[in-house]
Amino acid sequence: MAAPRGSIDVSAIRAAALSLFAERGYRATGMADIGAALGIRGPSLYRHVESKHALLRDIMLGTMRVLIAEQRAALESSGDVVVQVRRMVEAHVRFHAGHREEAFVGNREIGNLEPGARAEVLALRSRYEHTLREAIERGRALGRFTVAEPRLASYAILDMGIGVAVWFRADGPYSVNQVAYAHADLAIRMLGAS
């Protein structure tokens, strides 16, 4: 049964698209598939969204904006650089544990973005990594970290957190907080915290 006209909002369309992009991939998902998931005809979606690409762009930009906001909150939560890095890692891990579809789509579908949107997403990713690296470098300058390569360390920490989206299960043996704290401990040790 089709949904009543005007009852579909953009957030529901994005949620359906996200789920299908994560399950099938961007290229294998059509507007008809997204519409079917919502109980409407695919062409009806164009009353609410510009295109399938616009949905992908909005999903990926939205993901990065949430990650950056959570990272900023973690950074501002303390004046101690070790605590700042710990909380940034915890926020990163929590996001990836709780937003598996966004993680899959964000990492797998970057090549399907048009050049302008891809550049925008990549700039946000760079900003996110750079913020973590700056904290590591600051900790090193203060003698709190001994890591020789802050850039490589930031890449390793971020990849470690992204990997959580692959294996974490809410009904598994570890809670989100246990995983976040364990990853933060590993990251702090990797950095050679004093």
Rank of each mutant, 00 (worst) to 15 (best):
H53V: 03
R133H: 10
R144V: 03
V121Q: 01
V89D: 00
T146A: 07
R94T: 06
S154Q: 05
R65E: 09
S19W: 12
V10N: 13
H99A: 14
G172T: 06
E102L: 15
T146I: 08
R86V: 04
I162E: 00
R133W: 10
V85F: 06
N107Y: 12
A36V: 07
A2R: 15
M88Y: 01
D33K: 10
V164G: 04
A28I: 13
G139N: 06
R86C: 04
S11G: 13
A182C: 00
P115Q: 01
P4A: 08
N112G: 10
G111D: 05
E129F: 13
R189M: 08
M31W: 01
G172M: 05
S194L: 09
R125L: 12
M160S: 14
V93C: 05
R87T: 02
H96I: 06
L122T: 11
G39Q: 13
L191K: 03
Y128T: 02
L20F: 03
S51V: 06
R100V: 13
V176I: 11
R100M: 04
D159T: 13
Y181T: 15
P43N: 05
G79F: 07
T131M: 15
E120T: 13
M190S: 04
E120G: 00
L158I: 15
R41N: 09
A123P: 12
E137Y: 04
A117P: 05
V93R: 04
A32C: 03
T63S: 07
R5E: 10
L186E: 09
R189I: 07
S194A: 07
V147I: 04
G106M: 05
A103V: 14
Q178A: 07
N177C: 07
V89F: 02
M160W: 11
H183P: 00
L152P: 03
G192T: 10
A16L: 00
A22M: 11
I13R: 05
E101H: 12
R14C: 05
A15T: 10
T131R: 14
R140G: 00
G172I: 06
F168V: 01
M1I: 12
Y128F: 10
R108Q: 08
V105W: 06
T63P: 08
I136W: 05
F95C: 06
R14A: 09
R65F: 05
A12S: 11
R94H: 01
